[in-house]
């Protein structure tokens, strides 16, 4: 397995946001993570990427125990992520945003790779503009391109299609599929069920900090616990 998160626990004061959560991701797969608002999906991303300290459980990445490692060390091992609200370097240009993750590599290679991603996501005309002038959808694309600059083995994408125009969503999904075919793995938090259906081999449904169902979309839709979590009793 590429990622194995076992029995993860995270508490904020009296609130248990993640409670005994397991997640396993194999190389070259796309896992969809869905669940009602507040079910702990983004907190799970923060735990796996090292932004939050765990109150319990372990995270293995490429067979290595990364529990308690700082986020930059986990990133250097090959784990990338995006944020629900794009966390761009707003005053830096679009191009500079892409340079930062790969800045220790030779300049020519960094610039070439940045140009490729900008081209793919149709951001080339905006490359010299500050990131803050981009539309919400463009910011999502830029953040994804930035995460890809490190060439990660596993990418955690938090609502990566939100605000992106439909024509671009199709290209984005195609790009994700192509990367998957090259062995990259993804965990995707998404509220758009069409995207989930389109992309994901496996779906994990979270509710109240734990997984309540796993399987393909058809299976989890039929699951009584999932119906109850979304619609109530």
């Amino acid at each position: 397995m590429l990622l194995e998160a076992r029995d993860l626990v995270k508490r904020f004061g009296g609130l248990t946001a993640v409670s005994g959560m397991d997640l396993a991701v194999a190389p070259g797969t796309i896992v969809g993570l869905i669940g009602p608002n507040g079910s702990g999906k983004t907190t799970l991303f923060n735990l796996v990427s090292g932004l939050y300290r765990l109150d319990g459980g372990t995270v293995l990445f490429k067979g290595q125990d990364v529990t308690g490692l700082s986020p930059h060390r986990i990133a250097r091992l090959g784990l990338g992520r995006t944020f629900q609200i794009p966390a761009l370097f707003r005053k830096m240009t679009v191009e500079e945003n892409l340079w930062v993750p790969a800045i220790d590599e030779p300049w020519q290679a960094v610039r070439r790779r940045a140009a490729e991603w900008l081209d793919l996501f149709r951001l080339t005309p905006l490359r010299a503009e500050p990131a803050e002038v981009l539309s919400g959808g463009q910011q999502k694309l830029l953040e994804l391109a930035r995460a890809l600059m490190r060439d990660p083995d596993l990418l955690l994408l938090d609502e990566c299609t939100a605000g992106v125009q439909p024509a671009m969503v199709a290209e984005l999904l195609e790009a994700i599929r192509r990367l998957r075919d090259r062995g990259k793995a993804f965990v995707i938090i998404e509220h758009n069920m069409e995207v989930i259906q389109d992309l994901c081999e496996q779906i994990v449904v979270m509710h109240e900090g734990r997984a309540i169902a796993r399987g393909d979309l058809a299976a989890v839709k039929q699951d009584a616990a999932v119906v109850e979590a979304y619609l109530g009793r």
Partner: peptide
């Protein structure tokens, strides 16, 4: 400058 703009994002980018 990346740290100034978004420290958490910078950290998750290595």
């Amino acid at each position: 400058r990346a740290i100034r703009e978004q420290e958490e994002a910078a950290e998750t980018l290595g």
